[in-house]
Design a protein around this nucleic acid. Structure first.
Length: 337
DNA sequence: CGGCTTTGACCCGCGC
DNA sequence: GCGCGGGTCAAAGCCG
């Protein structure tokens, strides 16, 4: 489709597009319009084969377009890198590591801020709660195989050791419970100084060795907002998977997380993932800095998101590597005739 | 009776 | 060194 579009712009009939030009050596069989195969060119395809009929001018046009797309991809990559490196996404790490955390998958991340050393019987050494997660590569791999849908969500948070999830609740509901699909055991409750409502402490009760902890507290500004702070990562599959994902049907009932923070190791931005009237994303909380706050709101604006999505979609669909991978994935899904 | 919650006490890091 | 405050423990109570 990408090449068909390019061919249209280059003045060539899309019907006679030869997929072997831009796609992998095993082109997909995606219907009559795209039936041309490199091994067995369909004489009934009704037109020319681009590879043989393309004029020098058309070739130059496509080459120029390829150069243009490559430049767009480069700019897009720079934009994404900039967004990752921006202060709200990742404050400059003290260890001098790459702000994009590209190397974090290979090296154990620093443990969460909570690194208290207690001499008496704690279930797990607090200092290695992160190591326990990262050391259980098998468990994580098994987890990753459990549910691609859920891992799409958790995978995006994998590099975040601490994350915050906001949930809308009934203001009259006094139970500090967030239905996130995991089983939790409450082990403490405390009234903190900066918030009149108590903070509840939970441990993951599904697996005894799971190091994940959760703190739940009503928002000081909005008592109908429950803020859950998760520390660590589960080393076991979620007992109930996709049903509790943000944006799912269960989420819209208001009993499960409807928003998520981008990063909690630094300034936190909490985005409401439920669509508002304009179909955009709303900033619930942001960092203290007005500049960061403004930037967050700009990024969360419908206009910015629309432009970004269009740019990404446009650039991706023009990327031959992306279309190769997409075509290969589609081929795998088609029945083998 | 076992599991979970509650809650006061305790631990410990951190700032002064 | 001291006090504050967040985090955790563990005994007591509750509940199915």
């Amino acid at each position: 489709m990408l090449l068909m579009d390019s061919a249209r712009r280059a003045g060539c009939s899309p019907v006679c597009l030869d997929l072997s030009v831009g796609l992998s050596p095993s082109p997909p069989k995606m219907g009559a319009e795209m039936a041309a195969e490199p091994e067995r060119p369909d004489p009934h395809a009704g037109g020319c084969r681009m590879a043989s009929s393309m004029t020098d001018e058309q070739a130059k046009t496509l080459e120029a377009r390829f150069t243009q797309v490559s430049e767009e991809n480069r700019r897009l990559s720079e934009m994404i890198a900039y967004l990752y490196a921006s202060p709200f996404a990742r404050p400059s790490p003290p260890d001098g590591s790459d702000s994009t955390r590209a190397s974090q998958a290979a090296s154990p991340p620093t443990p969460p801020a909570v690194s208290r050393k207690r001499s008496r019987g704690s279930l797990e050494p607090p200092s290695n709660s992160g190591d326990a997660n990262n050391g259980s590569g098998n468990a994580e791999a098994a987890h990753a195989d459990e549910s691609p849908l859920s891992d799409g969500f958790e995978g995006s948070c994998r590099r975040i050791k601490v994350r915050r999830v906001c949930t809308r609740i009934d203001p009259s509901d006094t139970t500090l419970t967030v239905k996130d699909g995991y089983q939790w055991r409450k082990y403490g409750q405390k009234v903190t100084r900066d918030n009149p409502s108590p903070r509840a402490y939970f441990r993951c009760a599904f697996a005894p060795s799971c190091p994940v902890k959760k703190k739940v507290q009503r928002s000081a500004e909005d008592s109908s907002m429950l803020v859950a702070t998760y520390e660590g990562e589960h080393n076991h599959p979620c007992p109930t998977r996709a049903a509790e994902l943000p944006g799912s049907a269960a989420t819209r009932t208001g009993s499960v997380p409807c928003s998520i923070s981008i990063n909690a190791s630094g300034p936190t931005i909490t985005l409401d993932l439920t669509k508002n009237g304009a179909g955009g994303v709303r900033v619930l909380e942001a960092a203290e800095s007005p500049d960061v706050k403004k930037l967050c709101q700009e990024i969360a604006s419908t206009e910015f998101r629309t432009a970004l999505v269009e740019e990404m979609a446009s650039s991706l669909t023009r990327d031959s590597k992306f279309t190769d991978a997409l075509a290969a994935a589609i081929l795998k899904q088609l029945p083998d005739y």
